[in-house]
Design a binder for these strands. Sequence first.
DNA 1: AGCGATCTTTGCGCTATAGCAAACATGGTG
DNA 2: CACCATGTTTGCTATAGCGCAAAGATCGCT
Lengths: 262, 262
Amino acid sequence: MHWIIRLGKSEQRSYTSLNPKEIIVKQQLDYLDLLKSVSLFSDLKKAELLPVAQAAIEKCFHAGEFLIRQDEPAEYLFVVGSGNIKLTQLSSGGDQFLLCYVTSGEMFGSIAILQNAAYPVSAEALTYCQVLLLPGSVIRHLMSEIPQLAMGVIRHLAGRVQSLQRQLQELSAERVEQRVARALTRLASQVGLRTEQGILINVALSRQDLAEMTGTTLYTVSRILSGWEKRALIDAGRERVVIKKPHGIVAIAEDLPAPRSK
Amino acid sequence: MHWIIRLGKSEQRSYTSLNPKEIIVKQQLDYLDLLKSVSLFSDLKKAELLPVAQAAIEKCFHAGEFLIRQDEPAEYLFVVGSGNIKLTQLSSGGDQFLLCYVTSGEMFGSIAILQNAAYPVSAEALTYCQVLLLPGSVIRHLMSEIPQLAMGVIRHLAGRVQSLQRQLQELSAERVEQRVARALTRLASQVGLRTEQGILINVALSRQDLAEMTGTTLYTVSRILSGWEKRALIDAGRERVVIKKPHGIVAIAEDLPAPRSK
DNA sequence: AGCGATCTTTGCGCTATAGCAAACATGGTG
DNA sequence: CACCATGTTTGCTATAGCGCAAAGATCGCT
């Protein structure tokens, strides 16, 4: 990440040795690179992104801090520059559901584009995070000038709808083991890190987290992972999973007949 | 519904006794009324809706016919003028999930706004249906001229995302009885018909349908409905449910302690 | 290095729900 | 009006997954 680290308060700009104008320009260029990498803005020219970058607020969060809390008024879209974040939803009954992880180059809080909306989820920083806050009102107004932007938002939301529908279907039709396998493959493709032992899921991932993702209990997840570890499919530790035989896990996720573990 | 019934083929227009121009104008006015009633277009002025109405294709379907099939290229948005439709999703494993019912004044197939997308669901007519087909390309191009339209689409999708997230949470955390109760209350508010005996769910609703909505089996649904019938909460018949004590069902859906059935 | 907090494992019993099979009900149709 | 297709009920059995409790592992901190 070639993005300049800067700690929250914008006043700090004036404390640097460079002259203010130069800093602002540099910052905007950096913002532009980050924004451009987000699929929401990929159709836009850099020039069109300038007003977005200008309205963006840079902010950092420490592990454990909440970026947004469920039911609070939704003012900002969040673009993640670095770090890992998890989105969770709390039900009235007090059960928590882990919707997804968000990591660099991704975005969340698109609900802020709508007026008077509230966040339907909470976002918790799992590591130190650098994010850009984009005021929903700015995006909203910009959309009328830049139709591509509106299309980007629509594409983003449509993708989310489809992935949620698929998840719903899976949750209703598949057994727990299959769902956990699916969650792992999803995580692998999103935050997986190729190592010698296999694919390391590169976020702190407790049994409880996996349970909240798949609608089960930490006990059941623990038993499943233990089983897989005995079959040498994975290597599991405290808040850590390494997939040693990806094809084996995929086989379970897709419910293929023979794992063919020769 | 004050919408003129006309059978599919546009050639029929010339067979009427009125002069063609008058008919076309009349038709567009009717289309405009229908479109205006759809939340997607509610922010638009009637004049702005004219191009949409002009591009709309009227079509009718008989009970049992499929309006769209999963994985087919998505060309049209559908606006329902009359009739009931169910949206289902088929998994690779062959399990069907019933996503939702769609009825007059509602809309589906918004994925068609995106280029080269495929429908993620199938839509089956449960009754005789009159629908308007709006070419996705037309909406797509109109969005750049009418920002309100883009906002409407975004609002629609955002609502869908939230409702799906809620459903996901419910499916993962709640027991079957609760989920069935929830499905019934949802249906009651959408297609419920107030009668003397209670709220009649005004669509053909088999045990199998309820099972596919809630991620369970028709056996379990049957047992649950039988139980509720014994407690005089509902009145169930072949593909028919009447909610006699709405508060009782809501109490189950919300998992309230005392049903208070005095 | 040792301690406490947190996470993980696993034995055990239990319940909710799946799923078959067979009888039963219902409504449309000729 | 009787038949048939289709939907529904219910007894029975099987089992996946829940959830407690207690022991064990791991990590960060001082």
